[in-house]
């Protein structure tokens, strides 16, 4: 069995629904049962809570308490909040998070927002991975009271060349961003995408024709999605052994070791 690094999971509660595995003990048990050796975890609390440091502290504590060395916390920074840079510095310098997770749709800023661009530069300087969650839920099924706008990813095409050493990861990118835009963005080799919201028959195999295998990561969006979805996509696409190793763990490992 491959070792798996899942770059896209969340702790805590989704705002509008309890999920079958949203208790941390259950979540870790499930991850271990399918061979996940490391899971990069954000917190659903970060979607709506304004006390982001409180969210990040709980995330860190839960990862330590329940994580069995599998859960790796990714704190959130919301650049639309006052004094957001302090949150970033705490994530990097105080909590020693490997990276940060951003939710632009819920935090209501565009990807050409100067605060977002400034945050990318800070992360580049600090060597922190930045995960941008492009979609939280299919807009068609969102709760009407939490009906957030889709994020336009096109500004990234112009922004990313300005941060060439940034380790940027787009999570859940395939729901609302078309393949042409993804391809264009991924011309920058410091960008990676995960497969959680990639849909269509044998779509990983098709994606490989457009994006380098070195830029594709295994992300499940568990526990919001059944983790079996991402695992079976790997099987459905009938990848060769080298490609599957890269996607399952090697690419993520490379991001950490660089």
């Amino acid at each position: 069995m491959h070792s798996i690094i899942d770059v896209n999971i969340n702790l805590s509660r989704y705002p509008t629904r309890r999920l079958p595995d949203d208790e941390p003990e259950l979540l870790v048990r499930k991850l271990k049962s399918v061979g996940v050796s490391e899971a990069w975890a954000g917190s659903f609390d970060a979607l709506l809570h304004r006390d982001i440091e409180g969210v990040n502290l709980r995330l860190k504590k839960d990862c330590e308490r329940f994580g069995q060395r599998i859960l790796i916390p990714f704190g959130t920074v919301n650049p639309a909040l006052p004094d957001w840079k302090e949150d970033f510095h705490r994530c990097v310098e105080k909590h020693h998070f490997r990276g940060i997770r951003l939710f632009p749709a819920y935090h209501r800023y565009l990807l050409n927002d100067k605060r977002f661009v400034e945050l990318l530069h800070l992360a580049e300087d600090a060597g922190a991975i930045v995960q941008v969650v492009m979609t939280v839920e299919d807009a068609r099924t969102q709760h009407p009271l939490l009906s957030v706008s889709k994020i336009d990813s096109k500004p990234l095409i112009d922004i990313i060349p300005g941060v060439p050493n940034l380790k940027l990861m787009l999570l859940n990118a395939f729901r609302d961003t078309n393949m042409n835009t993804i391809t264009k963005i991924c011309e920058n080799k410091n960008v990676s995408v995960d497969i959680a919201m990639l849909e269509g028959v044998q779509k990983i195999r098709i994606l490989l024709e457009k994006v380098s295998v070195n830029q594709i990561l295994f992300g499940s969006y568990f526990p919001f999605f059944y983790i079996e979805s991402a695992l079976l996509k790997m099987k459905e696409s009938q990848l060769n052994s080298d490609d599957s190793k890269k996607i399952f763990y090697q690419n993520a490992k490379n991001l950490i070791s660089e």
Binding site: F225, E228, L232, K235, E236
Partner: peptide, 18 residues
Amino acid sequence: DAGGRSFASQISKVLGAD
């Protein structure tokens, strides 16, 4: 709903269900 959806994501709904 394949080919618009992957078989994998849709099978997971049943396979992964408690």
